[in-house]
Design a binder for these strands. Structure first.
Lengths: 350, 350
DNA sequence: GTGAAAGCGCTAACAA
DNA sequence: TTGTTAGCGCTTTCAC
């Protein structure tokens, strides 16, 4: 309010020159002060900071970027912002980025290669300092474009030859093995798996890990009980429907993600099946909502915060050491089983 | 792959000069061509486009912004990206923005004024061409800052004197009246309301609209049945608990948003109350998930797409006509009742 | 330790 | 119609 009176059309947002003039120093000194250069004398620095405060000055990022070649912008591409897993991931990533003086550009690919390509193009235009491609297995179409421009990349479950790239490995094994073991322990042997879309590497990996775990537990794998879904709630409903139409039926279902599991919960309820008495259900992700399903979902937790932190650290490492080699890293994000209410011993055969 | 071979360390991303040289024209002509200036001759334009293609050139946004003063960046600040309503909103906003050559900067305020202030500051630094503040009623702390810099703003349910601002009015009335009327029609007279946090204007408005509707329907308003929640699922659970602890109890509950309603659904279930036979529940928002709750949620739909479009159009109008007056607009986004399975006549008194 | 000056890549005003 | 040129606001040599 007081402000509005102060500001009268003509005067524009102050620039570095205005600060220099007010502090009676050169613009170079202002720049050095702002950037924390150790050479400026305390006396001048103080005058500069005072002027900055007085003018309510802040540097123009675009000018900075133009000359320094660094934008302090990271791109993050997710598969689908509408799946609760991703907002939670973005939230973490943003928090970390902002805390470290970076800004983020978010895009969802919606599983469409054309959209993905466009996302990357736009990020390139904005001169991002790095891109986290967290689409979990659809990244091919853009890898070339990205590495062609030498821009740092971090990928999930995908190794790239580029020196400015790192990868985040998801240790599905621990979580999925625990899940299968948990079910085996309480007496299940007929376990189905609702997979994610096979075009996603991660979906394949999860399924493979499930199969491996079943073998480890010496449990039979029935290929009919492995059904490809699409990681959406509706897909879970449909997938479970297919499972039900089979003659023999599993007593437990592990799902490739939580949304699918929530779909199963819903479908089971509508068919009069009680979870967990009649059917055990396990998800994967542990989205916030998993705690609140009915019954609360037993699920394999994949920490968004860990993922976000790994992605950020990887990008920062590359972005802040341009051209340096030997910086490729592999981050491991683990998974673990969270037992809640959707699993119980199988019903007694009648 | 082929690319990688092509690209050898030394050569950098092409700039406008490279294009000009290859096309044998001046950089001005390249600039004009790219920006669709009608004066360039077809012949030269063609040469320029060829060169652009050949070099895989794209303009540097920061340089453009620096000289033109326009960033083609819009900021969007939401309350909490973790509430499904907002990702859906962001998705729409992004689609529209990208289709129109804009990029977006997303931030969530998390209902924290300090965070909000910081968001705005960062957006100012990035020189956004406008900001959509869709926090639904917590915007005060930043209004000053924004208008001080003459940056276009669009707000929900809040009018600003600034010429470069517009507001989106939410017509809660239609939807809420329909909801109350719907309940009244099927026989409810004891209707409770789980409100949003009172620090949000929108929450107050929704509650007021509920009270008005009750009066219109000549239904009694019991202040004990109006409980302040926080627009989260957990908040809905708690709020419903409070409602249950009262001596007289409503036969229907309208919630200030869907997450609250989902909380009620959950709490009711755990208490052995059947929805809709024992209790009718109505939400507000119609998030994607509402269709999949058990039972499917009857709710008051608030279109994210409409909201996003209004916000974008408002911002564009101001951004593309800088300094022009008479551009303030008021957009009206309507609401309407979507009847699904969570409402039914009240139980007969026994 | 400080300042002058050269650009970063582009647009727009002005000349031709 | 096209080209030349002056900056946009900043960082970063290079002198002093």
């Amino acid at each position: 309010m007081a402000r509005k009176a102060t500001r009268k059309g003509a005067d524009k947002t102050p620039d570095i020159r205005a600060v220099a003039a007010l502090a009676k120093v050169s613009i170079a000194t202002v720049s050095r002060t702002i950037n924390g250069s150790p050479v400026v004398s305390e006396k001048l620095a103080k005058r500069v900071w005072q002027a900055i405060e007085q003018l309510n000055y802040f540097p123009n990022t675009h000018a900075r970027t133009l000359v320094s070649g660094r934008s302090r912008l990271f791109g993050i591409i997710v598969e689908n912002i509408t799946n609760p897993f991703f907002p939670e991931l973005i939230q973490s990533f943003e928090e970390i980025a902002v805390a470290n003086g970076y800004e983020i550009l978010v895009s969802s690919s919606n599983s469409d290669p054309a959209v993905l390509t466009n996302c990357v193009r736009r990020m390139l235009e904005r001169k991002v300092d790095g891109v986290a491609v967290l689409t979990f297995g659809e990244e091919e179409p853009v890898l070339d474009q990205l590495s062609f421009h030498d821009i740092p990349v971090v990928l999930a479950e995908f190794r790239l030859a580029e020196p400015a790239s790192s990868t985040i490995l998801l240790d599905y094994s621990t979580g999925i093995r625990s899940a299968v073991h948990h079910l085996a322990t309480i007496g299940h042997s007929k376990i189905g798996f609702l997979a994610g879309p096979h075009k996603l590497h991660s979906a394949i990996t999860r399924q493979t890990e499930f199969e491996n775990s079943m073998r480890s537990e010496k449990l039979p794998i029935d290929k009919n009980w492995i059904i490809e879904c699409d990681h959406t709630l509706k897909g879970g409903v449909i997938g479970f429907g297919k499972l039900q139409s089979l003659v023999g039926q599993p007593t437990a279902v592990i799902c490739s993600n939580d949304m699918t599991a929530i779909g199963v919960l819903r479908a089971a309820y509508l068919q009069g099946l009680r979870v967990p008495q009649d059917l055990s259900v396990i998800g994967l992700d542990d989205i916030d909502f998993a705690e609140f399903t009915l019954p609360p979902l037993t699920t394999i937790r994949l920490s968004r915060a860990d993922l976000a932190r790994a992605a950020f650290e990887a990008l920062r490492l590359h972005a802040e050491n341009p051209g340096k080699s030997g910086l490729q890293r592999e981050f491991l994000v683990s998974t673990n089983l969270v037992v809640r209410g959707s699993t119980a011993p199988p019903p007694l055969p009648n």
